[in-house]
Amino acid sequence: MANLSLLLSIVLQVLGRVACLEQVNDRQCDCYLTNDTSKNYFTTHDFFDFRALAQYAKVPSPITDPYDSSDADETSNYFLDENWTNVWGIQRWNNSDGVDSGDVPVLLVNSPNNIYIEKNEDEDPSSETFLTMRTLRYRHYQSAAEFESISKAYHFLSVRMYARTIGAPGAVTAMFTYRNDGGARELTSVQESDLEIRTMDPPDKVQYTNQPSYNLEGYDIPQSTQNATTPKQADWTQWSVHRMDWSPKNTTWYIDGRQVASIAFQVPRDPSQVIFNAWSDGGEWSGNMTVGDAAYLQIQWIEIVYNSTGNEKTTDKRNDDMARAPLNAKRDEGCQNVCSIDDTPTTGTPVLLQGAASRISDHILGLGVAYVWIPLLLATFLI
């Protein structure tokens, strides 16, 4: 009983520290410390919340003509507001060059008509609405969806989406960073970290890659990619937090806080874009969707903490020298107020990690997973 009393005392102290973390706004944060194994610092935080946008909810009718689809208007004023347009650009490009050259079998056309706010009609909905990205197959083309960051200056980040993928086989939904300094065919100029869900795969399998995944001779590069199994009860058809952390040493992926993959091979080096898409081109990777079928990436929210460089267009208004400084220099010179988006009880709202000693002890204890290990310890003592 003495041991149990001691354990309960420790648990209460730890939970007390979590409860005392002050929720703040981003203006009160000098930088952000993530709770992954490498404890990365970032300078800037963005949060995009699609959970309560009933005034914009409307599922647009599909557009059968590929040219009309590409020229379609945005589906609601939400995508015309500067809070969206200052950060994201909805794409209209197509792959007709690849079709003409014989590289891909099906014409892919990105359309603003396939990105919209939808009412959540789940049996027990966890939100009022969500953002949907739709890809659907017509006889002569695949209508797809993509939005990219306006900035090409993200230089290391932790990006998360609370999302699910549903629909027919033959599509890919993805969240990734991307940079290409050469032409479309310049394989060696690509720097990219991918999270890809293929709807022809089992629902507990997700593909993670630091591109390119094959060489100039066309051979696969096994060390560039991992096909991971999702945690139990978190297959890609279920609402889950998908997270990608890009750091100088590796790219690491998580589902609902559990690490599922990490790749140190050919980690992107240079500033990049952030991209989300839902697509198919009828090729070997995506599969060939049946005419009339569709698949969907549905997202309740997107959250990013990141550093950026001033060498290109950037959304980071903070001092660039601080963003690229060593971690200790950041803490001493630029990070008097260190915040967390992991230890907060309210998604999208950071908490202030109070005091240097408290910050160190909290993250040694791993408070981001406190609610997992505390019940396990209690169960051990009570058996």
Rank of each mutant, 00 (worst) to 15 (best):
R243C: 06
T199W: 12
L4C: 07
R179K: 13
E146R: 05
H45N: 02
P222V: 00
A295G: 04
S9M: 09
S111P: 00
P375F: 08
G355T: 13
Y141V: 02
D204W: 04
N307T: 00
L80P: 03
M161T: 15
Y306P: 02
V372A: 12
T64C: 06
L327K: 08
W373F: 06
I117L: 10
C335I: 06
V14S: 04
Q13K: 12
Y141Q: 00
S96E: 08
P62D: 07
G283M: 10
D68K: 12
M322W: 06
N227P: 10
V260N: 11
D97N: 11
Q238G: 05
S272H: 03
S340Q: 07
W93Y: 15
G310A: 08
W236A: 05
E82V: 15
L352W: 06
T230F: 03
E186H: 14
L33K: 05
S151E: 10
K39Y: 12
D220R: 14
M133V: 02
L382N: 13
P231W: 03
S361I: 12
V267D: 02
D49F: 08
I10L: 13
A153V: 13
V59F: 01
R318Q: 11
G310W: 04
G102S: 13
F147L: 09
K330C: 00
V24A: 03
N94M: 02
D220A: 14
L21I: 02
D49M: 08
D194F: 04
E82W: 13
T75C: 05
Y219P: 01
N94A: 02
V24E: 03
H155L: 09
W236H: 09
I197R: 09
T229C: 12
I304C: 04
